[in-house]
């Protein structure tokens, strides 16, 4: 048994028993962990709103090798990203990213790059960055830094290079670009050259410069469901946060797949 102290972002909280709560958090040094917060339901004193989803906290927990769950001993609020609460769309997009990290990051596997990405993403939303643009940047970068690509060098089914082709499509099934001769049966999404170049930049720019990128109207329309569908394809499940984003009209439920 070891007592650890770490920085973390709260991903999800659930009631566990009459008095306890189960907290899933993404820690900087240990990756995703789930812990029991004893008494967090009954007595609000010990964990007083330091365990809210999307909050940045300093946690102290007891790691127990015999159990998958850790025991959360203390949690101190570092940044509650309070401004998110004043705008349902921003909270919706913040929750979407926490949910994606919850499902895509394996337990107990540190990923400092992903931690920094999630933290900076929440910070961007907090200071008023456009939620959808910021979310598209997050999704592109998250897929890339978790090893999911996607491949944007040229057609993944033949040798055609990006600069030699004209009409390009994105195949969710292949996890990359396909040329016009190989789009059949791939449920392809049309993508313009501008969008491909933007996505490549979002994969490679240093994190501090990522947030300057802008998805203009066309790229935004092309990528809106492409990236979400790619995430859902890898997860093999839907994301709950999308329901709220649809309901408040932040996302229109039409798809641009051809």
């Amino acid at each position: 048994m070891a007592i650890r102290r770490d920085e973390a972002i709260i991903l999800r909280t659930r009631d566990y028993s009459e008095s306890d709560r189960l907290i899933t958090f993404f820690s900087k040094n240990q990756g995703q962990l789930t812990g029991i917060a004893k008494g967090a339901r009954r007595s609000k004193k010990r964990f007083v709103h330091t365990l809210e989803p999307c909050s940045h906290v300093a946690v102290t927990y007891m790691d127990r090798p015999t159990s998958g769950l850790v025991r959360l001993d203390a949690s101190e609020l570092k940044n509650a990203f309070i401004a998110l609460r004043s705008d349902i769309a921003r909270l919706g997009y913040a929750s979407l990213s926490c949910e994606i990290v919850l499902h895509m990051s394996p337990e107990r596997q540190a990923n400092a790059a992903l931690f920094a990405l999630l933290y900076q993403y929440l910070e961007q939303l907090e200071i008023g960055a456009k939620p959808e643009n910021t979310s598209l940047l997050f999704q592109t970068r998250m897929l890339h830094s978790s090893g999911y690509g996607p491949n944007l060098q040229g057609c993944v089914l033949c040798d055609r290079q990006l600069r030699t082709g004209e009409n390009w499509f994105f195949s969710i099934l292949q996890g990359g670009l396909v040329c016009k001769d190989h789009k059949h049966g791939q449920q392809p999404y049309p993508v313009s050259m501008g969008t491909v170049m933007l996505l490549r930049q979002a994969q490679q720019l240093p994190l501090s410069k990522l947030w300057r990128l802008r998805f203009q109207r066309q790229s935004r329309q092309e990528c809106r469901f492409l990236l979400l569908d790619l995430v859902r394809h890898y997860l093999e499940k839907d994301l709950k946060s999308l329901k709220l984003l649809y309901q408040i009209g932040a996302l229109k439920s039409t798809n641009n797949r051809i």
Binding site: S95, S241, L244, L245, I248
Partner: peptide, 12 residues
Amino acid sequence: VLAPLDGIGPEN
């Protein structure tokens, strides 16, 4: 209450 992570939006 509105709870994005539980899929609860205004219509719910």
